[in-house]
């Protein structure tokens, strides 16, 4: 099955060019680099979306319009069954948030500041009853699911994942197209040799094997080179504090993601080799 890969020196001399000559390895290196970066971003987004989604699914907030009722309302929340990790958002944090919107006026003691209590729930908790009891103490108190608040963000994250996947597929398609062009260019360059080989009884498969091997070596070298550069860039990004602070803080790559990224150069090599074989065989079919 892989006999085409292990040719004799005499067979290798037939094409007259050494592997890694020409633009193909560099083209594939650039494609692999791009695919790796986009795929890493997509996988990191997927991980982030997963974490955000699972973290938000059981997380709720109790919004209290009158912040002075916070202690009593907190008592109600704590005394309810099925409630875990209740935390009041400090007033200072609330005022800081308001300041971003209102400016210095947000810090004014005259401005009534609502209070927030965040908590996790276990299955079977009657949130309507909790909301009613809180409202009895602090009128207008309302339970809000984080899942609902984060819905647009999660949708955006999922959309970005799909965009990343489409980009990866488009880049892989471009890579395949580049390989087809490279294979056809190589066929044109070696047309005289191919005609001689055909004339003395070489089969299409014999001719194809020569080109397939050359393109496989070019593709493997290019994809490994591109992957290595992409790995360095990703490590640098992860190590950069600014990036790590805002973006990488929640966006990390798990072992499965790293395995997927590692497989990309190999998959690209296989794709390039297969596409080259199909392209060369199809081109040879046009000759007698």
């Amino acid at each position: 099955m892989l006999t085409w890969l292990f040719t004799s020196p005499a067979e290798r001399r037939l094409l007259g060019t050494r592997p890694l000559q020409g633009p193909t390895p560099w083209l594939i290196a650039i494609m692999t680099f791009s695919i790796m970066i986009v795929a890493a971003a997509g996988l990191a987004l997927a991980g982030t979306a997963q974490r955000v989604s699972s973290g938000a699914s059981a997380r709720f907030s109790l919004q209290i319009p009158d912040g002075s009722k916070l202690p009593q309302t907190m008592q109600v929340v704590r005394s309810s069954t099925g409630i875990a990790n209740p935390e009041a958002v400090p007033e200072s944090e609330m005022r800081q948030t308001l300041e971003r919107w209102l400016g210095p006026a947000g810090a004014s003691a005259d401005l009534p500041v609502p209070a927030l209590i965040t908590f996790d729930v276990t299955a079977g908790v009657d949130l309507k009853a909790l909301e009613a009891r809180a409202a009895a103490i602090a009128p207008g108190a309302k339970v809000i699911a984080h899942r609902e608040a984060l819905g647009p963000v999660l949708k955006s994250l999922h959309a970005l994942q799909w965009i990343a996947l489409v980009l990866v597929l488009l880049l892989a398609g471009s890579c395949a197209g580049a390989v087809v062009l490279a294979a056809k260019g190589a066929l044109d360059t070696h047309r005289a040799t191919i005609d001689v080989m055909h004339g003395i009884g070489a089969t299409d498969v014999q001719v194809t094997n020569l080109f397939q091997r050359k393109i496989a070596i070019d593709a493997l070298t290019g994809s490994v080179l591109g992957a290595a550069i992409a790995a360095v860039v990703l490590l640098l990004l992860a190590a950069t504090s600014a990036f790590a602070g805002e973006l990488m803080g929640g966006a990390t790559l798990g072992p499965g993601d790293l395995l997927t990224l590692t497989a990309i150069p190999l998959l690209l090599t296989l794709l390039a080799t297969w596409v080259a074989r199909i392209a060369v065989l199809a081109a040879l079919r046009t000759a007698l």
Binding site: S8, A10, R13, L14, G16, V196, G201
Partner: peptide, 23 residues
């Protein structure tokens, strides 16, 4: 119609190699 980048030896050997002869 000799293969320009092959030696005279390799050109003459081509039919044998294509037919599957060993070195």
């Amino acid at each position: 119609r000799l293969v320009r980048h092959l030696s005279a030896f390799d050109n003459v050997a081509l039919p044998l190699r294509i037919a599957g002869a060993s070195e």
